[in-house]
Design a binder for these strands. Structure first.
Lengths: 211, 211
DNA sequence: AAGTTTGTTGACGATGTAGTCAGTAGCGAC
DNA sequence: GTCGCTACTGACTACATCGTCAACAAACTT
């Protein structure tokens, strides 16, 4: 017991390995967003990462494993942009603005991750049976929104309503991106629509709550 | 010139052919929503339709051709549920409610078509280069919404804003479905969230317009 | 009925892809 | 140096899938 058991060795070799793993993830993200998750071959990824094909299988079980890793990472990135869970109680207007803002910077700074996130969201939504084990990041995502709005909502709001409002917020933040890009709006237009969605959501929730 | 040149022959043979084509489309819709558009083989479709593989290629160029046909059909179905284009001028509140309602019945009555519609929307949004020729139904869809809200909006609204409000409405109608199903909400919950989105959109647009 | 056209079939060649594995290269311990 | 270990490689097997086509079947025409 001379040193911590969970200490990483961190030699040059293992550093090289993580670098390779990261190169593979970067390449996979790029390829998934270019040819599509199901439309691409493992070799497309390894080719793009400039590593041998076998190397992929040293780091990931299969394509879905890499996808899961990326979706987890995307969800983490998005959640990290949200206000801290135990931040001071502020008005729900401000809280909602903060949450939409998190999506907005996620979109502007990591649109590649956001696009994959949306791609996965639709895969899970439209054919969850075909993509086992991919729902987790989306459950975490909605959970993160829910806990962040919970404290700012009036105590009279039912738990079930909180989940609904969280869904509504996610829809207001994700929907305009999918719709906007599907009709080839510019990034700028998407951002404007997102802001419109924010305003609309604010007014809407206020009214729904007061009812 | 004894009869119209564009008259269909409509013999037993061609009726049989259209029936086969329809069986293939039904099967394709089912398979696309089960295994995914890119995750399925042509034979999955012909197997499910119980026809020979070659028959598929007599009716469609390839998988994308069948997908395009289905997405066109889905957009038509959805647009047909909207109020008629030249219906009497009513308040935009009512018009928006009508439009959301159209999505709602589309979801309840043809969720298979809606799910494929959403799948295609994300394909086009996230990697349009990989799916050429699939944007058309979505452009028609947004156009349909736009013309239907145009007459009910104040004359002071800029054309550019109309397109934005149309996008917002589409997002409010599609977003909750994708988000809801991705976190495995029940159909009933999705419908409730859709109604919440309608109320929120009403309040929101009202406020945005008055600003 | 014989001939023509249209629709359907499934076996086939060509190609693509997944996942493996024996072999190589680089690193770290001694 | 050399030994062991870990990371990496890409040729290889096995299998899936594409799109074609010659043969067959059904429906029309004369």
């Amino acid at each position: 017991m001379d040193d911590e058991p969970d200490q990483r060795p961190e030699g040059r070799a293992s550093r090289r390995a993580s670098k390779t793993r990261q190169r593979l993830l970067d390449a996979a993200l790029y390829i998934f967003n270019t040819k599509g998750v199901e439309g691409c071959a493992i070799e497309d990824i390894t080719e793009s990462a400039d590593v041998g094909k076998g190397t992929f299988y040293r780091h990931f079980m299969d394509k879905q494993d890499a996808l899961r890793t990326l979706l987890d990472f995307a969800a983490d990135d998005l959640i990290k942009r949200m206000p801290p869970e135990q931040s001071p109680a502020i008005s729900f207007e401000d809280r909602i603005t903060q949450l939409i803002q998190a999506h907005l910077t996620f979109f502007t700074e990591r649109s590649d991750l956001f696009l994959l996130f949306l791609q996965g969201q639709t895969m899970v939504a439209t054919r969850s049976a075909a993509v086992p084990g991919l729902h987790a990041p989306y459950a975490r995502y909605i959970g993160a929104i829910e806990t962040r709005i919970a404290a700012s909502l009036p105590a009279t709001v039912l738990p079930e309503q909180k989940r609904q409002i969280a869904s509504l917020l996610a829809a207001a933040a994700c929907g305009p991106v999918t719709v906007g890009l599907s009709i080839s709006s510019s990034k700028h237009d998407v951002i404007k629509t997102l802001d419109l969605a924010r305003q609309s959501l604010l007014a809407g929730i206020k009214q729904v709550l007061l009812k």
